[in-house]
């Protein structure tokens, strides 16, 4: 079997979720090829080899720095055909899901999203998907010749074995109409760690009592090199920006460590975080439902506990 991985990049950096996709492709066995679009440095691309030998097709042109779905999916389709790849492996982001869908239509391929572990390939090709917003899983059989799989975070253990990277220049054939979306401007909170990439997340809920109290959570996040998130009521109230909303209708996350402060744990919030490796809940209400799914809990006043936790972490370092 041979796999093709799409390396999603942002501002010239390959996203860590794409590296997980590379590790997943290697763990499936067989030959692994990757495709990268736009200005990505050779050093960045060389680092992709840490999970094993890999050939990288690089469409190195700045016009691909903010690619449209049509541009990427045409490039991927051409790479799949040229490399005779059987399975396209994608990381989990809303943009990459759009690519997967488009490529699946072009290749008449079955597509499975939110895959949580390595496929079973014998006697038939089966994958386990997370469904119902993290509340359940389903095993599906993929019968098409070509397949598209997007993986959820933590779907595979990252084993760095070291390998050789073969860089190959790649010039996909594209049409003017593939550049059908124009990016006018962008705003990105600089220096912030994005929720989908973060290995630690500190989230606050209504128990924080107001936007002005977020300082202590930001301090804690800083000490852990963590991203900050929030519950739906908090983003609805405008205390925090919408892109920080974690939950069933917000961002679904799967960090190593999720620290929930002043969040009671509604079923919709838990659905968005239950794939986390370890959950810590800090809440003044010992009956808060979040404690039922937590690994560690502290019952008490967040305004007392959070600064103590920050201090203890700084002490540890």
């Amino acid at each position: 079997m041979s796999q093709l991985v799409f390396l999603e990049s942002q501002e010239g950096k390959i996203k860590s979720t794409s590296l997980e996709a590379v590790a997943f492709a290697h763990a499936m066995g067989g030959q692994v090829t990757a495709i990268a679009m736009g200005s990505v440095s050779t050093t960045e691309l060389e680092a992709v080899g840490k999970y094993g030998d890999i050939k990288i097709l690089h469409a190195n042109d700045s016009k691909f720095d903010k690619p449209t779905v049509a541009v990427c999916s045409n490039a991927i389709e051409q790479a799949m055909r040229a490399e005779k790849a059987d399975v396209l492996i994608l990381s989990n982001s809303s943009f990459v899901a759009l690519l997967g869908a488009s490529v699946a239509v072009k290749l008449k391929a079955n597509i499975a999203l939110n895959v949580v572990e390595l496929p079973k390939t014998s006697p038939s090709f089966k994958v386990k998907q997370s469904v119902f917003s993290g509340k359940a899983y389903v095993w599906v059989e993929m019968k098409s010749e070509k397949k598209v799989i997007s993986i959820k975070k933590n779907a595979v253990e990252l084993k760095e074995s070291g390998g050789k990277v073969t860089l190959v220049a790649f010039n996909p054939t594209l049409k003017e109409k593939d550049f059908n979306i124009k990016v006018i401007s962008g705003t990105k909170a600089t220096g912030e760690i994005s929720l989908s990439d973060a290995s630690i997340i500190v989230s606050g809920g209504r128990g924080m009592k107001g936007a002005e109290n977020w300082g202590i959570l930001e301090e804690l996040a800083k000490s852990l090199n963590a991203a900050t998130g929030c519950s739906k009521p908090v983003s609805d109230l405008g205390w925090r920006p919408h892109h920080e909303h974690v939950g069933q209708t917000g961002i679904k996350v799967a960090p190593q460590l999720y620290i929930a402060v002043g969040i009671s744990g509604a079923i919709q919030h838990i659905a968005g975080v239950n794939a986390s490796k370890c959950i810590v809940v800090i809440n003044s209400d010992p009956e808060a439902p979040f404690f039922k799914v937590a690994d560690f809990g502290v019952v008490g006043d967040a305004f007392d506990i959070v600064p103590k936790l920050t201090a203890a972490i700084k002490n540890m370092k």
């Binding site: 359940a136 899983y137 389903v138 599906v140 059989e141 809940v281 560690f296 008490g300």
Partner: peptide, 23 residues
């Protein structure tokens, strides 16, 4: 594309409670 079997997430063990005085 055929759905074969559903599974529910494994249930978590009991939470370990830690005293606020022993962070």
């Amino acid at each position: 594309m055929e759905s074969l079997k559903y599974e529910l997430p494994p249930t978590k063990g009991a939470v370990q409670l830690i005293s606020p005085d022993n962070i």
